[in-house]
Write a protein that binds this DNA or RNA. Structure first.
Lengths: 258, 258
DNA sequence: GCAAAAGTGTTCTTCGTACACCCATGA
DNA sequence: TCATGGGTGTACGAAGAACACTTTTGC
């Protein structure tokens, strides 16, 4: 009932800021109703030649000591969940993703054995070239999606949902380019799609479809050939035209499907 | 950093269950770190002849007194967010949805002026026949999606996301049937799709596509005609075959797209 | 009785799919 | 030099889109 809801809100608002004046370590926060902890977890994807990879961090303490888990941490009172996810990512792995996206919130009562923890989960995409430089944490490692170790907490389930969300999303939006370098070949792009969707496409049809979308342009660095040279040319590189995509999206002309 | 995260978890675990023995009203919950409140909000859709509708509840107290808002409330410590959404739905509107689905979690720091509140949002689908009987709350009312009043908090934004999520979902899964009666005509189904997707389809192509999916069967109550009668027959009713859909889904044969 | 809605099939065009050869690259 | 991978075009079939007439239904 509406009355009840608002009453509850008023109640729990009455936080007794017990000890603003005490020593910092002894400050506590008191509520008339129990509150869960809220964290974010981040499934970071990176694509390397043929394989989709995710970044895991090995836990140093109980519970699930030595098990692998996704990076994440507690949402602060002055930041949104997305800001939290980005901050934790930076702190724990020194990575700044090309794309980040909330995909699900996990709320099973016993998902953390210590206390009630609700986790808002994100998937993030990163280029391989961005990884070199970042990712200096010794307890962090990349794993092939097809070959993951056992994960802590409910992170197996989180991963499954993350992969599903990624697959769904890539059906509709050109987020795959966030996993590739600025310039890439069509076969690279195809391996990416095949890796994520766990499928196989005909090379020629894949290329035709991608080029028909009108979102790719040839790199200026491609070697130019004589107008009627035959057979294979040098490895062609392409670029994704973000502006074109934005334009098509606002005009509702965009439609990708694989 | 991993260390820091776990330390934080340990800290905030040290909840001082201050007063299990005191009078219930004076019991308080104390944490070493501030915790946000966590609520669920529920965007309930219902389809009526030509229009998609949502259920809103008029607020009785400040803030946003008299403004309209989605039903929802605080997540209890012993229930998942989905259980909470269903419980609140039942309590506030006496409705039991055909389908409920989490679509986004809203975490803007100032979305509630009183305190930090994170809201896990669901959309729910309900048949019109289920509404009659439920929905006895005097402060609740159905509104056409195309004609909503101003909403409380960030509920305008929540609604926009809910509608987008519903549109996305109905592209891929036959959840539209949860909004229709057990038996329905093809034109009814078409109006539903057109209403949700805000589009127009050719009647004959729509029917062809729907029947081709193989998920519909004729009602046994349809009047039978002579084998070679001409012209229009009586209004035909159809049923959705859930078992067939499940079968196709497990065999990865299903593919809907509008 | 009349206007609005609903049942019904065919044609054309578009898109997806299957498929083969030649050449560059690097082991 | 040989195997692998990459560039390129065409023909066929399936699916989507456009489209008219007749009958029922409800005002």
């Amino acid at each position: 009932m509406q009355e009840k809801v608002d009453k509850t809100i008023v109640d729990s608002t009455s936080k007794v800021a017990t000890s603003e004046n005490e020593k910092k370590d002894e400050r506590v926060y008191t509520y008339k109703h129990p509150h869960p902890s809220v964290t974010t977890d981040c499934v970071i994807f990176c694509f390397d030649k043929k394989d989709l990879n995710v970044l895991l961090i090995q836990r140093g303490v109980e519970p699930y000591k030595d098990a692998w888990a996704f990076p994440g941490g507690f949402v602060r009172m002055d930041e949104t969940a997305e800001e939290c996810a980005l901050r934790e990512l930076k702190e724990e792995t020194n990575l700044i993703p090309e794309h980040i996206e909330q995909f699900h919130t996990f709320t099973e009562v016993d998902r953390d054995p210590r206390e009630r923890v609700i986790s808002i989960a994100y998937f993030a995409l990163i280029k391989k070239s961005d990884v070199e430089g970042g990712d200096d944490a010794s307890d962090a490692r990349w794993f092939k999606v097809k070959d993951l170790p056992p994960l802590a907490f409910d992170h197996d389930y989180i991963f499954k949902k993350a992969l599903t969300a990624l697959k769904q999303k890539i059906h509709f939006e050109p987020i795959g380019f966030d996993l590739l370098e600025e310039e890439f070949s069509i076969p690279e792009l195809q391996r990416l799609y095949e890796g994520i969707l766990n499928a196989h496409f005909d090379r020629r049809n894949f290329q035709k479809k991608m080029l028909q979308l009108g979102l790719l342009k040839e790199s200026e660095h491609n070697v130019k050939r004589k107008p009627n040279a035959k057979g294979r040319s040098k490895n062609k590189k392409w670029r994704f035209i973000m502006e074109k995509y934005e334009e098509m999206k606002t005009n509702h002309q965009f439609r990708l499907e694989f």
